[in-house]
Each structure stands twice: as structure tokens, then as C-alpha cells.
């Protein structure tokens, strides 16, 4: 347990020291940690405070403001479904409903087995390809699913998500 914690402290330290931002701030530090370990554990808040010479309050303030930060470990895979107006018109709600059902969730969140985190995304930026989802930060639209539409597309997406859940590769 202790070694795990030491491990994480070290990983966070490395993420802080190696961040790509030229101007280091509380936000750039938090983003670097999120990229490195996927979430912001309490110790990261303390480490960022020390690293940026800020208070723990300030760091919590920033971390709790931006909606991308999470404070518990994410699932093994992250699935994001865009609910922007374009994707909405093109069937995003059907995808969301089916995905929630397939994962046994009532709203965005993590499956109890820790396999999948489902997130609502305000806009993935690929509106011309809507409706889009992203799986582990790779954006996928109907075109990449063989041009499927409507129910067939929703079904294919659910297959992808189910494969992630059972651990099968989705190559």
C-alpha cells in the first residue's frame, strides 16, 4: 500500500516537472496530472499547492471548477457521447439511452466493476460527422462505422461498448 502511494506521489511529481506548458500554473499542473494518471487524488492537490506556491484552497477551487477533472480513478475505458445540438438532432439521445442501458447506469458515471466511465460531452468538435462518440479519446463517427445510420448505428456502438466491458479487444 505504502509503495503504491509512493509510486503515485512520484508519478505526480514527474508529471508536474515534465509538463509541456511553458508557463506553469495551478491549472497547467492539474491538467498534466490528469493526463498522467487520469484523475486528481487528494495528495495531488497538496503536491500542486506546494509546486505552484498556492494554497490547498486555491487548488481545490480550480480543480472543482473545470468539469473535466475527476477525483476518483476513472474506469479502464472512457466512453464519451456528444450531446451538442448537432449530435442531438442526429440521434445522440438514442445513443445515450442505449449506452446507459447497456452499462446499467442511470446517468453519466462509472460502472460498478470499474471497467467503463461514461461521460456526456458538450461538443467533441466533429459536428460534421455527427453523431459522434469518443472511446479512450479517439473520436468515432458513423462514417468510421461503415456508414451505418439510425438503429443499426446505435447497435454497432453498443457492440463496441460491450466489447470494452467484457475486455475483448475492439480492433
Amino acid at each position: 500500500m505504502t509503495t503504491n502511494q509512493d509510486d503515485q506521489t512520484q508519478k505526480i511529481g514527474e508529471a508536474l516537472a515534465n509538463q509541456s506548458a511553458r508557463t506553469v500554473t495551478v491549472l497547467s499542473s492539474l491538467l498534466a496530472i490528469e493526463d498522467a494518471i487520469g484523475y486528481i487524488p487528494p495528495r495531488a492537490i497538496e503536491q500542486v499547492a506546494a509546486y505552484t506556491d498556492s494554497t490547498i484552497n486555491d487548488v481545490w477551487g480550480v480543480a472543482s471548477f473545470y468539469t473535466n477533472f475527476r477525483f476518483t480513478p476513472p474506469g479502464e475505458h472512457t466512453v464519451e457521447v456528444c450531446w451538442g445540438p448537432t449530435c442531438h438532432l442526429l440521434g445522440a439521445q438514442e445513443i445515450l439511452q442505449a449506452a446507459l442501458q447497456a452499462l446499467g447506469l442511470s446517468e453519466e458515471g462509472d460502472t460498478p466493476d470499474g471497467k467503463i466511465s461514461l461521460k456526456y460531452n458538450t461538443c467533441l468538435g466533429a459536428c460534421s460527422q455527427g453523431p459522434v462518440i469518443s472511446v479512450d479519446h479517439k473520436i468515432i463517427g458513423p462514417q468510421a462505422l461503415g456508414g451505418l445510420k439510425g438503429d443499426a448505428m446505435v447497435q454497432r456502438i453498443i457492440e463496441i461498448i460491450s466489447q470494452l466491458k467484457t475486455g475483448a479487444s475492439n480492433a
Binding site: 506548458a21 508557463t23 491549472l27 492539474l30 491538467l31 471548477f65 473545470y66 468539469t67 473535466n68 458538450t122
Partner: peptide
Amino acid sequence: MEVSLTGDSY
């Protein structure tokens, strides 16, 4: 010049 990244916030 440099790039500055922000978190999710409209």
C-alpha cells in the same frame, strides 16, 4: 509565443 491549455469551461 506559447500555447496555453484550459480545462473544460465554456
